[in-house]
Protein backbone atom coordinates (compact mmCIF):
# COMPACT_ATOMS: atom_id res chain seq x y z
CA UNK A 1 0.00 0.00 0.00
CA UNK A 2 1.53 3.30 -1.00
CA UNK A 3 -1.29 5.74 -0.64
CA UNK A 4 -0.98 9.51 -0.62
CA UNK A 5 -0.74 11.82 2.39
CA UNK A 6 -3.25 14.59 1.87
CA UNK A 7 -3.89 17.77 3.82
CA UNK A 8 -6.91 19.95 4.35
CA UNK A 9 -7.44 23.36 5.92
CA UNK A 10 -10.85 24.31 7.25
CA UNK A 11 -12.61 27.54 8.02
CA UNK A 12 -13.73 28.02 11.59
CA UNK A 13 -16.54 25.67 12.66
CA UNK A 14 -19.16 27.44 14.85
CA UNK A 15 -18.42 27.54 18.59
CA UNK A 16 -20.67 25.51 20.88
CA UNK A 17 -20.86 27.19 24.29
CA UNK A 18 -22.63 24.25 25.84
CA UNK A 19 -19.79 21.90 24.91
CA UNK A 20 -17.19 24.36 26.18
CA UNK A 21 -18.94 24.56 29.54
CA UNK A 22 -19.10 20.78 29.68
CA UNK A 23 -15.32 20.59 29.19
CA UNK A 24 -14.91 23.29 31.87
CA UNK A 25 -16.84 21.10 34.28
CA UNK A 26 -19.82 23.43 34.62
CA UNK A 27 -23.31 22.03 34.66
CA UNK A 28 -24.97 25.41 34.93
CA UNK A 29 -23.95 28.96 34.20
CA UNK A 30 -24.42 32.30 35.98
CA UNK A 31 -23.86 35.83 34.70
CA UNK A 32 -20.20 36.05 35.75
CA UNK A 33 -19.33 32.69 34.27
CA UNK A 34 -21.13 33.48 31.06
CA UNK A 35 -19.26 36.79 30.83
CA UNK A 36 -15.95 35.00 31.35
CA UNK A 37 -16.79 32.47 28.66
CA UNK A 38 -17.72 35.16 26.15
CA UNK A 39 -14.60 37.16 26.94
CA UNK A 40 -12.41 34.11 26.38
CA UNK A 41 -14.13 33.13 23.13
CA UNK A 42 -13.63 36.67 21.91
CA UNK A 43 -9.94 36.61 22.77
CA UNK A 44 -9.38 33.21 21.19
CA UNK A 45 -11.36 33.99 18.08
CA UNK A 46 -9.25 34.15 14.94
CA UNK A 47 -6.29 32.49 16.66
CA UNK A 48 -7.03 29.00 15.43
CA UNK A 49 -5.62 27.34 12.37
CA UNK A 50 -7.68 24.28 11.49
CA UNK A 51 -5.51 21.69 9.74
CA UNK A 52 -5.74 17.98 9.06
CA UNK A 53 -3.45 15.55 7.28
CA UNK A 54 -4.59 12.06 6.48
CA UNK A 55 -3.90 8.92 4.57
CA UNK A 56 -5.98 5.96 3.56
CA UNK A 57 -4.84 2.42 4.40
CA UNK A 58 -6.12 -1.05 3.75
CA UNK A 59 -6.73 -2.98 6.88
CA UNK A 60 -6.97 -6.65 7.66
CA UNK A 61 -7.98 -8.00 11.04
CA UNK A 62 -6.78 -11.15 12.68
CA UNK A 63 -8.41 -11.45 16.08
CA UNK A 64 -7.22 -8.42 18.03
CA UNK A 65 -4.39 -7.65 15.60
CA UNK A 66 -5.04 -4.82 13.16
CA UNK A 67 -2.71 -4.91 10.17
CA UNK A 68 -2.39 -1.61 8.29
CA UNK A 69 0.35 -2.78 5.93
CA UNK A 70 2.89 -0.23 7.12
CA UNK A 71 2.44 -1.35 10.74
CA UNK A 72 0.36 -3.56 13.02
CA UNK A 73 -1.38 -2.79 16.27
CA UNK A 74 -2.75 -5.16 18.85
CA UNK A 75 -5.97 -3.90 20.40
CA UNK A 76 -9.24 -5.66 21.01
CA UNK A 77 -11.20 -2.42 21.15
CA UNK A 78 -9.70 -1.00 17.97
CA UNK A 79 -10.32 -4.31 16.18
CA UNK A 80 -13.92 -4.21 17.34
CA UNK A 81 -14.20 -0.60 16.17
CA UNK A 82 -12.81 -1.49 12.74
CA UNK A 83 -14.76 -4.70 12.26
CA UNK A 84 -16.40 -4.84 8.84
CA UNK A 85 -13.87 -2.31 7.53
CA UNK A 86 -11.47 -3.02 4.70
CA UNK A 87 -10.13 0.52 4.59
CA UNK A 88 -9.38 3.11 7.22
CA UNK A 89 -8.52 6.80 7.25
CA UNK A 90 -5.69 7.60 9.63
CA UNK A 91 -5.62 11.27 10.37
CA UNK A 92 -3.97 13.92 12.51
CA UNK A 93 -5.72 17.19 13.25
CA UNK A 94 -4.65 20.33 15.05
CA UNK A 95 -5.99 23.79 15.79
CA UNK A 96 -2.49 25.28 16.07
CA UNK A 97 -0.18 26.75 18.72
CA UNK A 98 -1.95 29.99 19.62
CA UNK A 99 -4.41 28.33 21.99
CA UNK A 100 -1.44 26.78 23.82
CA UNK A 101 0.03 30.24 24.19
CA UNK A 102 -3.22 31.55 25.62
CA UNK A 103 -3.41 28.64 28.06
CA UNK A 104 0.21 29.18 29.10
CA UNK A 105 -0.26 32.92 29.48
CA UNK A 106 -3.36 32.72 31.61
CA UNK A 107 -2.03 29.72 33.49
CA UNK A 108 0.37 32.24 34.99
CA UNK A 109 -1.98 35.21 35.23
CA UNK A 110 -5.51 33.94 35.58
CA UNK A 111 -6.18 30.21 36.03
CA UNK A 112 -9.92 30.70 35.56
CA UNK A 113 -9.27 31.96 32.05
CA UNK A 114 -6.67 29.24 31.47
CA UNK A 115 -9.33 26.69 32.35
CA UNK A 116 -11.76 28.29 29.93
CA UNK A 117 -9.17 28.32 27.15
CA UNK A 118 -8.47 24.64 27.86
CA UNK A 119 -12.15 23.95 27.43
CA UNK A 120 -12.38 26.08 24.30
CA UNK A 121 -9.38 24.28 22.82
CA UNK A 122 -10.91 20.89 23.57
CA UNK A 123 -14.18 21.93 21.98
CA UNK A 124 -12.36 23.37 18.93
CA UNK A 125 -10.30 20.29 18.17
CA UNK A 126 -13.34 18.04 18.55
CA UNK A 127 -15.32 20.36 16.28
CA UNK A 128 -12.50 20.15 13.73
CA UNK A 129 -12.48 16.35 13.86
CA UNK A 130 -16.24 16.29 13.40
CA UNK A 131 -15.98 18.66 10.45
CA UNK A 132 -13.24 16.58 8.88
CA UNK A 133 -15.06 13.27 9.30
CA UNK A 134 -18.26 14.74 7.86
CA UNK A 135 -16.31 16.19 4.97
CA UNK A 136 -14.47 12.95 4.15
CA UNK A 137 -17.60 10.94 4.58
CA UNK A 138 -19.45 13.00 1.99
CA UNK A 139 -16.43 13.47 -0.29
CA UNK A 140 -15.82 9.73 -0.50
CA UNK A 141 -19.48 8.94 -0.17
CA UNK A 142 -18.87 6.40 2.57
CA UNK A 143 -19.91 5.94 6.17
CA UNK A 144 -17.15 6.39 8.76
CA UNK A 145 -16.95 4.53 12.06
CA UNK A 146 -16.67 6.61 15.25
CA UNK A 147 -13.07 7.82 15.32
CA UNK A 148 -10.72 5.93 17.62
CA UNK A 149 -7.57 7.45 19.09
CA UNK A 150 -4.44 6.17 20.82
CA UNK A 151 -5.23 5.92 24.52
CA UNK A 152 -8.86 4.89 23.96
CA UNK A 153 -9.73 1.53 25.51
CA UNK A 154 -6.79 -0.85 25.28
CA UNK A 155 -5.03 0.95 22.40
CA UNK A 156 -1.74 2.05 23.95
CA UNK A 157 -0.53 5.62 23.66
CA UNK A 158 2.64 4.43 21.94
CA UNK A 159 0.61 3.67 18.82
CA UNK A 160 1.19 7.39 18.28
CA UNK A 161 4.65 6.46 17.03
CA UNK A 162 3.16 4.36 14.24
CA UNK A 163 0.72 7.07 13.23
CA UNK A 164 3.43 9.72 13.17
CA UNK A 165 5.69 7.50 11.07
CA UNK A 166 3.18 7.37 8.22
CA UNK A 167 1.62 10.84 8.24
CA UNK A 168 4.51 13.33 8.02
CA UNK A 169 2.64 15.42 10.57
CA UNK A 170 5.48 17.88 11.16
CA UNK A 171 5.78 19.00 7.58
CA UNK A 172 2.09 18.82 6.77
CA UNK A 173 0.40 20.43 9.75
CA UNK A 174 3.20 21.40 12.13
CA UNK A 175 2.39 18.68 14.63
CA UNK A 176 5.06 16.93 16.67
CA UNK A 177 5.12 14.09 19.13
CA UNK A 178 6.71 14.60 22.53
CA UNK A 179 8.69 11.98 24.43
CA UNK A 180 5.67 11.59 26.67
CA UNK A 181 3.66 10.58 23.56
CA UNK A 182 1.46 13.62 23.90
CA UNK A 183 1.46 16.12 21.08
CA UNK A 184 2.50 19.70 20.48
CA UNK A 185 0.41 21.75 19.79
CA UNK A 186 -1.61 20.19 22.60
CA UNK A 187 -5.01 20.75 21.05
CA UNK A 188 -4.52 18.04 18.45
CA UNK A 189 -5.95 14.61 17.76
CA UNK A 190 -4.74 11.54 15.92
CA UNK A 191 -7.27 8.88 15.12
CA UNK A 192 -8.40 5.94 13.06
CA UNK A 193 -11.68 6.35 11.22
CA UNK A 194 -12.77 3.07 9.68
CA UNK A 195 -14.55 3.18 6.36
CA UNK A 196 -17.60 1.12 7.00
CA UNK A 197 -18.84 -1.36 4.44
CA UNK A 198 -22.22 -1.61 6.02
CA UNK A 199 -24.68 1.25 6.32
CA UNK A 200 -23.69 2.89 9.56
CA UNK A 201 -23.30 6.61 9.87
CA UNK A 202 -20.44 7.77 12.06
CA UNK A 203 -21.57 9.28 15.27
CA UNK A 204 -20.22 12.38 16.93
CA UNK A 205 -20.86 10.91 20.35
CA UNK A 206 -17.36 9.74 21.21
CA UNK A 207 -18.40 8.90 24.75
CA UNK A 208 -20.66 6.06 23.64
CA UNK A 209 -17.66 3.82 22.97
CA UNK A 210 -16.03 4.45 26.33
CA UNK A 211 -16.22 2.25 29.41
CA UNK A 212 -15.56 5.06 31.89
CA UNK A 213 -19.21 5.52 32.85
CA UNK A 214 -18.54 7.87 35.79
CA UNK A 215 -16.35 10.30 33.83
CA UNK A 216 -16.96 13.94 34.74
CA UNK A 217 -16.78 14.95 31.11
CA UNK A 218 -19.08 12.25 29.79
CA UNK A 219 -21.46 13.72 27.25
CA UNK A 220 -25.17 13.07 27.34
CA UNK A 221 -25.88 9.76 25.64
Amino acid sequence: MNSVILSKNYIEPPFCEREILRYAGCKSVDAELSALLKLCIKEANGKFDYKVCYREFHISLDGDVCDFGAFRLKSEKLAANLSHCKRVIIFAATVGVEIDRLIAKYGRLSPSKALMFQAIGAERIEALCDTFCDDISSEMNVALKPRFSPGYGDLPLDSQNAIFSVLDCGKRIGLSLNDSLLMSPSKSVTAFAGISDIEEKHTTNKCGACNQKDCAFRGAL
Binding site: A24, G25, C26, K27, L33, S112
Partner: peptide
Protein backbone atom coordinates in the same frame (compact mmCIF):
# COMPACT_ATOMS: atom_id res chain seq x y z
CA UNK B 1 -19.95 26.38 42.68
CA UNK B 2 -17.92 25.13 39.70
CA UNK B 3 -14.19 25.23 39.28
CA UNK B 4 -14.04 28.29 36.99
CA UNK B 5 -16.11 30.22 39.54
CA UNK B 6 -13.89 29.10 42.39
CA UNK B 7 -10.90 30.31 40.42
CA UNK B 8 -12.47 33.65 39.59
CA UNK B 9 -12.97 34.24 43.32
CA UNK B 10 -9.46 33.06 44.06
CA UNK B 11 -8.09 35.52 41.50
Amino acid sequence: VYLPQLLMSAE
